[in-house]
Design a protein around this nucleic acid. Structure first.
Lengths: 356, 356
DNA sequence: TTGTACGCGTTATCAA
DNA sequence: TTGATAACGCGTACAA
């Protein structure tokens, strides 16, 4: 029954349920039950079966099971664009946290990259419609949709992470971006800052929209004009955050009326911006306060240590998986489609009152 | 034949080959052939079939195919320990490059975390022996092996990346760590440095062994004593590189005879080390030269910009996938089990001759 | 509590 | 060139 070449008894791989059944002297179906519903089989036969299974090094065939029950045990995570714009620093943590939670639930994690071409979109749709995956977590991206098929119409449970798509009825796990930026801007205003430099990501990016809105809200609440904030970056599409910071620094030095505080939408761009600005002889925080977004560990070791709004990625990952498994098991939490995880402002030396 | 509820024709998901066959007016087997071996079917019927498939939004069921042909189209990447010690900075690039290459070859990428517990080892072995995956790329880790089953004995094609396991007969894609560190150490010696501070990772870590060996080789070649290098770190098991740098800085300040050059085995630890050292009033590179390993983009924007040995991760990823696909398709390149990709020294301001 | 028999959706073999 | 049919390995009615 074992079709593998039994070369010198060395190849013990590939034992089937039938092999276990024969060795244990029972029917295949009994083995199946013993493994899946241990309660519904005599204790003694179960022991025999387990012994036989162990002896043969039996491992159930996942594809056969998946085909039979019509379900896969794989969840895919859809990662955005070529350079993971805006989330590159946190990808490893996200993957780790999601994978850990998934495995506890009996699922495996498959990676899918969503680039801006039809090929990758089609690929993801094939995964969804081909029954390969049981659910999807999508990171900071829109749902792929190409020639008639759309991920939304696949019937697959989907959870959006970082990007709020609750409007489209999609379970979404997000941080309170807008509120966090509003609060930190308010704090800068309280310290006395009145001219701001906003370091944007790509313009249509969700994070950017939310975070910029937060800045404006704080200005409005303080009765300050929106004119006080100079917006830089944003014109560049999907590139390394570091490059954005470099370009923004060039932009900054040309300003005649210098802002006294910088609000950056990612740590990457804040770091490269600071590096270039310091070369021009400006000092942080004496001449310029800087605060950014992401909470990358490296911020603690910048000079000066960088204030940043930390994204609780592990918590978000766990929440996303919980929601997904709930959806898979039809345990929908009533009504709630948006889960907001609070981010945490970490104030470090890069922020101070403006020079008088 | 389509078992999905056809609610108002809205649910177009789940069309089967049988559905396509009926719509095209041919047998199922003809559809299968038309899709797999387009050459072996009449052009006209093929057109009919393709039209029908498109109309129904047909997507082949991957598990059914996998079961039938006895092969999965999934490759797993085994990532090391909880914090991806020593490779955290390059994980996103590695994943992206590997995934891209795999997809071109028709494969998908699954993630497997190898923690230091039996559970994760068993999980990986289940994936291997359960036919879920077709091959594995293992990153900087040893092969899992638990109660009789071992990944090596699974018959699965495996390629090791970053960690040289060619001794065990495993295809390995590595950088010339030792040589690179030897060269950079030689350069430091040439600049006049005579006392070195070596910032180690966990002791049994492969990278560390290789890189430290490189340091010693350079010393030996210059006729210098191994006593000239102070080794720090290494006692800490699997934690953030940043922490290692912090501890090493504490270690450094206690030294009575200060080294003039630091060789760190990862960018993370170099960055945190530099940050702490600068606080004590020492200046880099005036008082201390620093060079590290990984080539993280952030190094360019440290102050001062950090010299680092860049790992060509994308090239390594491509190479690993090429080797794996060769093995899967039985196209073994004769004899060659170790592929060395040259790393590249990027010299920046953190390195200078020692203060006279 | 256990065994028999069928089917999941696809590919491969064989005949037509 | 096409079609009927038998697997792939497992889970699950149903019968015993």
């Amino acid at each position: 029954m074992n079709k593998n070449k039994d070369v010198a008894g060395e190849e013990q791989s590939g034992a089937l349920m039938a092999d276990v059944a024969r060795l244990a002297g029972v029917a295949i179906s009994t083995v199946s039950r013993a493994l899946a519903n241990p309660g519904r089989v005599n204790e003694k036969t179960r022991a025999k079966i387990n012994a036989a299974a162990r002896q043969l090094g039996y491992t159930p065939n996942a594809m056969a099971r998946g085909l039979r029950v019509g379900k896969s045990n794989i969840v895919m995570i859809i990662l955005p664009g070529s350079l993971y714009y805006g989330v590159s620093q946190i990808i490893p943590q996200v993957l780790q946290s999601i994978n850990k939670s998934l495995i506890q639930g009996g699922y495996n994690l498959m990676i899918a990259n969503l680039d801006r071409d039809e090929i990758s979109e089609r690929h993801i749709l094939d995964l969804a419609f081909g029954g390969s995956v049981r659910g999807a977590i999508i990171l900071s991206s829109k749902l792929p949709e190409v020639d008639g098929r759309s991920l939304a119409g696949s019937g697959l449970p989907i959870v959006s992470m970082l990007l709020d798509m609750s409007d489209a009825g999609l379970q979404s796990v997000v941080t309170n971006d807008r509120e966090a930026v509003r609060d930190v801007t308010a704090e800068l205003i309280r310290l006395g800052h009145r001219r701001f430099f906003y370091l944007a990501g790509p313009e249509d990016n969700y994070h950017d929209v939310e975070r910029y809105a937060g800045v404006l809200e704080a200005l409005g609440a303080a009765g300050l004009s929106e004119e006080l904030v100079h917006r830089s970056g944003g014109q560049l599409d999907y590139q390394h955050g570091f490059d954005i910071g470099v370009q923004a620094a060039d932009d900054f030095v040309q300003l005649t009326e210098k802002p006294t505080a910088v609000i950056a939408t990612s740590d990457d761009m804040a770091i490269s911006f600071v590096s270039r600005i310091q070369r021009t002889g400006l000092s942080i925080p004496d001449d310029l306060s800087v605060v950014s977004f992401d909470g990358s560990p490296v911020c603690e070791f910048s000079s000066p240590p960088l204030s940043t709004i930390e994204q609780p990625v592990e918590e978000m990952g766990r929440a996303a998986v919980d929601l997904l498994l709930d959806a898979i098991d039809q345990r929908q939490k009533a009504g709630k489609v948006r889960t907001v995880i609070r981010s945490k402002l970490i104030l470090r030396e890069s922020v101070a009152p403006p020079r008088s």
